[in-house]
Design a protein around this nucleic acid. Structure first.
Length: 512
RNA sequence: GGCCCGUUCGUCUAGGGGUUAGGACGUCAGGUUUUCAUCCUGGUAACAGCGGUUCGAUUCCGCUACGGGCUACCA
């Protein structure tokens, strides 16, 4: 198999939004394929119609597109191996299940849900090790192995509901060769006779997945570690279907874990811990509940992807910031770790800060103007650029651009109480009144003149810089944060500056 | 419970039979600043435990502990 024929697939189930673990799996598939000059396929595995969520497929495609993960073949654009939605391939699977029955590697089973429950609870209470429907229990159940042939035929003809189960062999060692974990050996006796074909006429994941991967000529199956336990079953299926020579190589990725506590990252963790778990905002169609997304929180897709790429993979150098091209050229499965990673929201912010500060002022001004528009504020491009230059270094996420600059455009409507009590001394009001009357006389509103004036003023009042500047900031900004006061004064202009000082003095005096 | 996978600073990780066990995030301290950030400098902090193999193990092997996954007519 030459490298140029690499074909990988990302095969999500449209049961809800994709969380960052799924995005990472898709990303690694994408990077692997591009690195090898191969193809990435998106296949929608919608064989469980009970769990189908409207809008989920669109969400998945849109999310991955936002991340820059473009598929060569998918359910929208099609391709030579389509269709790419299993619901549209539904008619294809049954024949393979029947083929397995005929070759003796699968069988019909008629047990009801109640009977299955009974068997499992009986085996559990009997302290049996094997509580599964498998080599040691199947003869006690209702199936084409345990029942007389005429009875089986009668039930089938009568239209009794049935499933098709794989017939797991006894006393065999099944070998799975995993690109990340090496050789994994499993005793067949610990496997169970998984259902391949459901009584509703749909295949299960196991059957559909193997059939499609084979038909679509997938060369590498890169998926989450939760699939490792069923990989031996899949190996057996390839063998029994006669496809073992073309069987894809497996790579089971370690899982993303919760930032705190135990367990794998789940959909509920995000908003509980104050960070998004989804790439895009998601509104649950049933409950109407909204979950936040990275895009809406103000992350750049490149930063998000960079962060995700490094969560479980590293190139072995100390480089941390990667363009997409660098990720593609440097990615390899060999350098994917074996253990799960806890997701760190703080580091995610740091990544975004790196990307944000690498943008030029014009681009950032563009983002800021969007916030201005949605807040009904207008400003000149010139002013926008000046503001950006002053605040760019202090922003992590896009909304910080606005949150750290709104006082340039809107006067404070309240003054931080804590800051007031901390910096406002008995003599402050008098000092500022004096300052206000003198600063009004400045003709040239420029850096040098303001600087000079303030120094002279400070000296003549034998005050310290902070005694003047901190209260001044409170009046101009409303709190104790932001760029230099002179910088702000120059941007908002003399008139606005004087207005804020005087109204501030009034409000604070009458308020106290 | 059973089966499978894993375990280096709080977190993401590099490394690998003999290293001052490296980097990043966080955190702490100092510097810069009129403030808050940014930024700069420095510090803190790890080989899960026990046995083996070996002149020597954090690195190889085994066991234990711990963590994770799976154990559906879900994927």
């Amino acid at each position: 198999m030459s490298e140029s024929k690499v074909r990988v697939r990302f095969a999500p189930s449209p049961t809800g939004p994709l969380h960052i673990g799924g995005v990472r799996t898709a990303l690694y598939n994408y990077l692997f394929a591009r690195n090898h000059g191969g193809k990435v396929i998106l296949r929608i595995e919608d064989t469980d119609r009970n769990r189908y969520v409207p809008g989920a497929e669109e969400y998945i495609i849109e999310s991955l597109a936002w991340c820059g993960i473009i598929f060569d073949e998918d359910s929208r654009k099609g391709g030579p191996y389509g269709p790419y939605r299993q619901s549209e391939r539904r008619f294809m699977y049954r024949d393979y299940a029947i083929q397995l029955v005929k070759s003796g590697h699968a069988y019909y089973a008629f047990d009801s849900a109640e009977e299955l429950d009974k068997m499992r609870s009986r085996l559990k209470s009997a302290e049996e090790h094997l509580t599964q429907y498998g080599p040691f229990t199947r003869m006690e159940m209702q199936n084409s192995l345990s029942l007389p042939a005429e009875e089986v035929k009668r039930r089938l003809d009568a239209g009794d509901p049935y499933v098709i189960r794989i017939r797991i062999p006894e006393n065999e060692t099944v070998r799975v060769n995993d690109l990340i974990r090496g050789e994994v050996l499993v005793q067949s006796n610990s496997l169970d006779d998984k259902v391949l074909y459901k009584s509703d006429g749909w295949p299960t994941y196991h059957l559909a997945n193997i059939v499609d991967d084979h038909l679509m000529e997938i060369t590498h199956v890169i998926r989450g570690e939760e699939w490792l336990p069923s990989a031996p079953l899949h190996v057996l299926l390839y063998r029994y279907l006669g496809w073992e020579k073309e069987m894809p190589q497996f790579a089971h990725l370690p899982l993303l874990l919760k930032p705190e506590g135990n367990g794998k990252l789940s959909k509920r963790d995000g908003d509980r811990l104050g960070f998004p778990v989804f790439p895009l905002q998601w509104k649950d169609p049933k409950s109407g509940e909204i979950s936040s997304g990275y895009r809406e929180s103000g992350y750049f897709p490149e930063a998000f992807v960079n962060m995700l790429a490094l969560l479980g993979w590293n190139p072995g150098t100390e480089q941390e910031i990667f363009s997409k091209e660098e990720l593609i050229s440097q990615f390899s499965l060999e350098r994917v770790g074996k253990h799960g990673s806890k997701f760190d929201p703080e580091k995610a912010k740091w990544f975004n800060h790196q990307y944000l500060t690498s943008k030029n002022d014009e681009e950032l001004a563009g983002y800021l103007s969007e916030y201005l528009n949605s807040n009904g504020v207008t400003s000149s491009q010139n002013t926008l650029l000046k503001v950006i230059a002053l605040i760019r270094e202090r922003a992590n996420l896009l909304p910080d651009l606005w949150n750290n600059s709104r006082f340039f455009f809107i006067p404070p409507d309240q003054y931080d109480e804590k800051v007031f009590h901390k910096i406002w001394k008995p003599e402050t009001s008098a000092l500022l009144k004096d300052f206000l009357s003198q600063v009004a006389n400045i003709d040239v509103w420029e850096e040098d003149s303001l600087q000079g004036f303030i120094h002279t003023f400070i000296e003549s009042h034998s005050a310290k810089m902070g005694q003047l500047m901190n209260p001044l900031r409170l009046l101009i900004v409303g709190t104790n944060m932001g760029p230099g006061i002179i910088d702000i004064a120059l941007v908002i202009g003399k008139e606005e500056f004087l207005r804020r000082v005087s109204t501030g003095l009034e409000k604070l005096n009458y308020g106290k």
